[in-house]
Design a protein around this nucleic acid. Structure first.
Length: 335
DNA sequence: AACTGGACCAACCGCACATAT
DNA sequence: GATATGTGCGGTTGGTCCAGT
């Protein structure tokens, strides 16, 4: 990394971003792309630290962000991924196109955590609270074993996803640890992931990416790799269409874009699949989208900045008309 | 209408790690 | 190798909104 020129101690602004500041940042990134966040504030004329600019961009201004309520599919996926990964929000968010780690984290802390507790599930261990709160000795042992169970579970993903092994039998974990449904009952509809096109993502599983068990780890939306995804270079950019590219990657895993998650995650209690294709889910997402705060003034205000999407690059309706073009480095620029 | 407590979420903080000098 | 700087991540905080009293 290049060293920053010494000096210039400026009083930095903090707190909420104003539309004008967002404007400046968007303008700057539209013009120059992003790369060196530390220089962005100066070049963009912002009295913010680079870190703050980066955060603002990642969590709020990025054009490929999906906003609005989490769908049931997303919720189920978050819970399941959390059971495998723990508080690795960036890795969990990487499985949820358009979601940020911050968003997922907030959703977990404000909603899912509570929900699980209400159902008698310990959100930390994903085991029944009764079990988790039993005798202290047992609890300690349980904590350790639950984590190992988690890793075992993660391994199952890898094995099945890569097709290297026969699908393993379901893990010896109480069913309620894995079955979450909206009504709190282990239902057939729980964890119905089909249509939610994470399966395409699973095609990009990188067994080396996660040391703790080989679960799919895609770059977080907040990682630099995500920038590539925005440029259509990474799997994430192809996950939102029913015509996801077949990926004969090094894992030897061929993605099956329109199949259900159960195909890749055989131990999941998959039940009725209400939507068989990503498009249907996309519609569902579209309907659930809240008003996009940024789009109000970003895309309206940036008539010249249009988001040019390739099919599947942007499934989130509000952006479909906009056209931002990304270069190979993930920087987006004016057309 | 005023107050209060909880929920939600954007932003900050501190740390770890990577990398340039 | 030591140091400085940039970046990413997870935890936490603080402000705002809203329902209940």
């Amino acid at each position: 990394m290049a060293r920053r020129a010494a000096g210039q101690k400026k009083k930095l602004k903090r707190g909420l971003w104003s539309p004008e500041e967002d404007d400046k940042l968007m303008n700057h990134i539209a013009k120059y792309g992003y790369g060196c966040w530390s220089s962005v504030p100066k070049l963009a004329g912002l009295e913010r630290c680079g870190k703050s600019c980066r955060l603002r961009w990642i969590n709020y201004l990025r054009p490929d962000l999906k906003r609005g309520a989490f769908s049931q599919e997303e919720e189920d996926l978050i819970i399941h991924l959390h059971s495998m990964l723990g508080n690795k929000w960036s890795q969990i968010a990487a499985q949820l196109p358009g979601r940020t780690d911050n968003e997922v984290k907030n959703f977990w802390n404000s909603y899912i955590k509570k929900k699980l507790r209400q159902r008698g599930i310990d959100p930390a261990t994903h085991k029944p609270l009764v079990e988790a709160s039993s005798s202290s000795g047992r609890a300690a042992a349980s904590a350790a074993s639950s984590r190992s169970a988690v890793f075992i579970d993660a391994e199952l993903i890898l094995s099945s996803a890569t097709g290297q092994h026969m699908p393993p039998p379901p893990p010896p974990v109480p069913a309620e640890s894995y079955i979450y449904s909206s009504d709190g009952v282990a239902s057939e509809a729980s964890l119905s992931l089909s249509g939610y096109n994470q399966t395409a993502d699973l095609g990009y599983l990188d067994p080396d990416a996660l040391q703790c068990g080989g679960v799919v780890v895609l770059p977080s939306v907040s990682s630099s790799s995500t920038l590539n995804s925005m440029a259509g270079l990474s799997p994430a950019a192809t996950t939102t269409t029913t015509t996801a590219t077949t990926d004969n990657n090094s894992n030897g895993f061929e993605s099956t874009p329109s199949c259900s998650a159960a195909d890749q995650l055989p131990w999941l209690e998959l039940g009725t699949t209400t939507s068989g294709c990503a498009a249907a889910v996309v519609d569902q997402y579209g309907a659930a989208l809240d008003e996009l705060k940024w789009s109000d003034y970003v895309f309206d205000g940036y008539g010249a900045v249009q988001y040019q999407t390739t099919p599947g690059q942007c499934i989130y309706g509000d952006s479909k008309d906009a056209a931002v073009q990304f270069d190979a480095h993930g920087s987006w620029c004016l057309n």
